[in-house]
Simulated scan of single mutants.
Amino acid sequence: MTDIMQVNGLTFFHSDTKRWLKKPEIFQLGPIDLSVKRGETIAIIGENRAGKSLLAKLLVGAIPASKGEIELNNHKYLAKYNKQDTQQKRTHDIRMILQHSSESMNPAVPVGKILDEPLRLNTELSEAERKPLIEEMLTKVGLLREHYYFYRHMLSDGQQQRVALARAIMLKPKVLVADEPFAALDPTIRSQTVNLILQLQQELGLAFIFISHNLGIVRHIADRIIVMENGNIVEEGKTETIFRWPQHATTKKLVLAYQSLVPQHTIR
């Protein structure tokens, strides 16, 4: 597999000095260096406030970094991007799924219009050309073409997550970033969603970066694990290597907590 994304020296610095009667809050993420291969699944784990969600937002360009560079699909993006066309290309190549899919869906807008938005804003396709693409995407994520006309309240939690997934891959990105995409789902729907993502990843050749506290899912689908603490990567490696021989104290703590919840005969 070849690298589809290369991150070099990605850094974010935040200093909140305007806090009445409180100490200034200073947080630095990075510098982060990492590579992502085509079709690879990477899990980012760590304790709360480790910087996992912030890193995800920096990767997709939702928040500009202080410095650093991202090379994605042979296009380089500086931390402080300025040109709209550069950011638009980045929008095509990397997309994000949020944890609570229902909150990202406007209840007054039908599913078809929600999925139409990324095409309308980022392509020159006509409405007549966009509609069949949307219907095809609905079937690809396990929904019906008729769901084009459904509203949020007419969908189950699992169906809402499928709509969020459809919107994320509507522009055929190379990398999909997901922040706790399974946390709000019940176990049955969670299993179906995981299998769907694995299927789409194989069909589309997507690289998948996801943040999760569920190490059972991480062990099941991740090729590689990145462990974060206080805004830095403290350990990374192949999934089974991390689970069998964790090196850093944070990694050992997370793996031990996972093992304490799993029947011993299933741990290898």
Rank of each mutant, 00 (worst) to 15 (best):
M96Q: 06
Y148W: 12
I211D: 00
T241I: 10
T193D: 08
I42S: 01
G237M: 06
K52F: 06
L54I: 00
F12M: 10
Y149V: 10
L10T: 03
V177M: 02
V141E: 05
L115P: 04
I267Q: 07
K174A: 15
M105F: 11
R19V: 05
V109W: 07
L78S: 15
K174M: 12
K252F: 04
H265W: 13
V234Y: 05
I189E: 08
K76N: 09
L59N: 00
I217A: 07
S212Q: 09
D33V: 02
Q160F: 04
V36P: 10
A257G: 07
M228L: 10
D3K: 07
P263D: 14
D3M: 03
K172E: 14
Q199Y: 11
I197Y: 06
G51D: 07
M170P: 08
H265S: 11
Y77K: 01
W245K: 14
F12V: 00
G39F: 02
R152W: 05
L185R: 03
D157Q: 15
M137R: 10
T251K: 08
T86M: 13
A128H: 13
L119Q: 06
G51I: 02
H147V: 08
N230H: 12
E127C: 07
L121R: 09
K238P: 01
N214A: 07
S66M: 09
R38E: 15
S66F: 10
S156R: 03
A164R: 03
M137F: 02
P132K: 10
R130D: 05
S102A: 14
Q87I: 11
N232P: 00
L144Y: 13
A257L: 10
E229Y: 06
L165R: 03
G9L: 11
R130P: 02
A79M: 11
S53K: 10
M96N: 01
G112T: 04
